[in-house]
Nucleic acid binder design. Structure first.
Lengths: 97, 97
DNA sequence: GCCATATATGAACATCCTTTCATATTTCAA
DNA sequence: TTGAAATATGAAAGGATGTTCATATATGGC
């Protein structure tokens, strides 16, 4: 395994893991892992309140885990890159083996 | 990407990510990623207090991320399996690309 | 048994986080 | 421009979490 990363890198790793480590946000990430979805669609799929989903989407966006596209009154969210899916896969494999 | 896992699995994923998402614990995991180490060696390498390291090792052990081996007065810790290293790698790649 | 070393534990504190509730903002249609 | 739909925001409550400090427990050598 590689050497211990410097503190700055470890900080970023901690942040990423922190953002990923939430039940609601995990559901949201899975919800948009196939294709982009509007907030209301995510709310529907995830089964959480509109407010909560909006708050958590903001967290995900601030951490650059998702990107957005606006169309009329709707806002579509999707995962920022493939690393996110890989991360979810590795974690999923670990807990379901 | 796969379907949304059931709540039980998501709970486990959340727990694993939660445990991994801490600065001190990340350092500890890297410290023992090459080979097993005693608590005092980990304390030395990580640069945190003995108490903190012991507390966090307990967290890691409870989550089954590490295993232990006792020898005389020393306790050696090592990563439980290869998934942990993979997880660290994926996260590292994401934040350093 | 007694001491020194290694490790673990418990309480306390401060900080951060998730969630809810109420409300604000934006955008379009009529 | 008024209303409705979609999304975002702010404050507040409640619980969880990381860290420190002091102390306890265990183990082996003498």
């Amino acid at each position: 395994m590689a050497k211990l990363p410097d503190d700055k890198t470890l900080d970023k790793m901690e942040s990423l893991l922190n953002v990923a480590s939430d039940f609601t946000r995990l559901k949201i990430m899975y919800s948009i892992s196939d294709s982009e979805k509007s907030v209301s669609e995510i709310v529907e799929e995830v089964g959480a309140s509109q407010s909560l989903v909006s708050h958590q989407l903001k967290v995900l966006k601030k951490a650059n885990l998702v990107t957005t596209r606006k169309e009329k009154t709707k806002v579509f969210y999707k995962l920022a890159d493939h690393h996110i899916v890989e991360l979810l896969s590795v974690v999923y494999e670990h807990v379901t083996e």
